[in-house]
C-alpha cells in the first residue's frame, strides 16, 4: 500500500508491486510511480509528453 502524495489516500497496487509501476489513486485520479519497494514509496508519475503513445 502506498500513500498518494497528492491527497494522502492509500493506494493498493494490483498484485506484487514493481519498481517503476504506474498506479492510479482511486481518490484523486493522480498517476503515481512506485519508486521503492522496501519501504514502498510512490511519487507523482511524470506528465504525459507529446510523443508518448503506442
Amino acid at each position: 500500500m502506498v500513500t498518494c502524495p497528492e491527497c494522502e489516500n492509500s493506494v493498493v497496487p494490483a498484485g506484487p508491486p514493481v519498481i517503476g509501476e504506474i498506479v492510479e489513486c482511486g481518490e484523486c485520479a493522480s498517476e503515481l510511480e512506485i519508486l521503492t519497494l522496501d519501504p514502498i514509496r510512490a511519487a507523482l508519475a511524470p506528465e504525459i509528453e507529446e510523443d508518448w503513445g503506442e
Binding site: A14, G15, V18, G20, E21, I22, E33, P46
Partner: peptide, 14 residues
C-alpha cells in the same frame, strides 16, 4: 526497455 511500467509491462515481467 520501458520508462513506465504499466499493466502491460507488468504482465510481460510476470
Amino acid at each position: 526497455l520501458a520508462s513506465r511500467v504499466r499493466t502491460d509491462e507488468k504482465a510481460l515481467f510476470a
